[in-house]
Design a protein around this nucleic acid. Structure first.
Lengths: 257, 257
DNA sequence: TCATGTGAATACATTCACAGCA
DNA sequence: TGCTGTGAATGTATTCACATGA
């Protein structure tokens, strides 16, 4: 059983802050769109708007990569596309395996955004023998027994887990043992991995819960504060409030000892 | 066309930091698992391990909610489940609509994590007339023409967009016009929404790109530094480095003016 | 003259370390 | 005694505002 940590402590990577790394793909997407429209140069202001960030942040981000702009002019689109791609490692080929070909796994296999960014789906793997051989997105599904061989033969270093939660840790352990050092986890579980292995997780339910939190606040403010829409209103206590030092609202099902 | 901003400026919400809000669902999941195993109490240390964070962070997070623990003992599992659920707004019913029933939309419709957390899939919507009436996850798909009526009739305030990128902004505008104030976006586009509307995005390709960045660094360090695995090694320049003030490695396709 | 690039200032988040209470 | 709850210290990220140079 793996005992290692799950989340590496967000250390800087070659001097580039994590927060910046996480935004580079966003910039790249916006730049790619400009490139397709044959736009030659772009200002930090324009590009920031296209990427949905503010321009100061964008300039600071780019400053970590180097001085790739021209003062008084802006950035050369093609050049920046290249530089960011190189920084992200997208100028090389990344074979990935997707384990767990249910609805989500199939969606991932069909997702065009992978292929267009240097990612190549090397194999689809599922534990169900009945699926073996069935093509999904033009790629035949292989049985889980083949996992180690597939990883080794294809030099796979990135694995995607879209299995049910119960199977995820076991699949993860096998992927890691076979040589995978980066994992994208869609299963709603915390994965334990040894040091040196990166895990990123996408949890659909968690995103909805965060939205629900803010949605609830809006409803509360509305009931107490302004009549309909007044986003500039100061934080007010919601109708169902009570928060700190024990509730005075609804009675919980169980009280602490 | 909407002109509003996309990302609200990460303001605190009733004094609870965003970073904390984003972890509450994680704690809730771990607590639910404990609850199902009928574990009565849990220490910050144990719960932190189960959620994949460190215990100081967890205690600080809980301190924003109130003093729900017992010194020398720990936290009452059922009580905490209730408090966090209430804080996140999961004690009420949230009808959601999913727009775009392709592979991903179907996966979302089938995802069990929704129903178990107060989220109810009120409707599935797709632009393809051929899909109308076809049940997905037991829910018949409705045509996009019905969108406004569905949102209004069901009091939907949360919408999920799993359409192709090209359709996303238009769908978003219609959802917002119909009264939706929180959107979970799976399409690889930046959505523009008016103030007061929350957008969270999940981009599969972006997550992979972030992994690729770190993966590339590992490969670089390995080649230059220690022979195989030495995560404690200081940051060294990768073989393909050059970074600041112009590249000296591979020649880019286009140079700036 | 204009937009980049960047120190300095601010805001936010995490971690430490221990007082306080069951 | 043991674990929570929290001020203080540290680390990270964002924003400001302007010097710099094409």
């Amino acid at each position: 059983m793996a005992t290692g940590r799950t989340h590496r402590p967000a250390t800087r990577s070659r001097g580039i802050p994590e927060a910046t790394v996480a935004r580079l793909p966003l910039y790249l997407r916006a730049l790619t769109a400009l490139s397709e429209r044959s736009v030659p140069t772009v200002s930090s202001e324009e590009l920031a708007a296209a990427a949905g960030v503010n321009s100061a942040k964008l300039r600071k981000d780019f400053s970590y990569l180097g001085s790739y702009g021209t003062r008084g002019v802006g950035y050369d689109v093609e050049y920046l596309v290249y530089q960011i791609s190189r920084e992200l490692g997208l100028t090389q080929d990344w074979p990935v395996v997707i384990v767990g070909i249910g609805n989500l796994g199939a969606a991932l296999a069909n997702y065009g955004g992978f292929a267009s960014r240097g990612f190549r789906v090397a194999a689809l793997i599922d534990a169900d023998p009945a699926m073996a051989g069935t093509p999904v997105a033009g790629i035949p599904v292989q049985h889980a027994d083949e996992l180690e061989k597939i990883v080794t033969d294809n030099g796979v270093s990135i694995g995607v887990i879209s299995t049910p939660a119960g199977a995820a840790q076991q699949v993860c352990d096998r992927l890691v043992a076979a040589g995978v050092t980066s994992i994208l986890n869609f299963a709603p579980t915390v994965l334990s991995v040894p040091d040196g292995v990166d895990v990123r997780k996408v949890d659909l339910s968690i995103e909805l819960q965060i939205l629900a939190f803010h949605e609830q606040r809006k409803a509360g403010e509305e009931a107490v504060g302004g009549s309909s829409v007044d986003p500039a209103a100061p934080p007010v206590r919601a109708a169902t409030d009570s928060s700190r030092k024990g509730p005075d609202g609804d009675v919980p099902a169980v009280m602490p000892a």
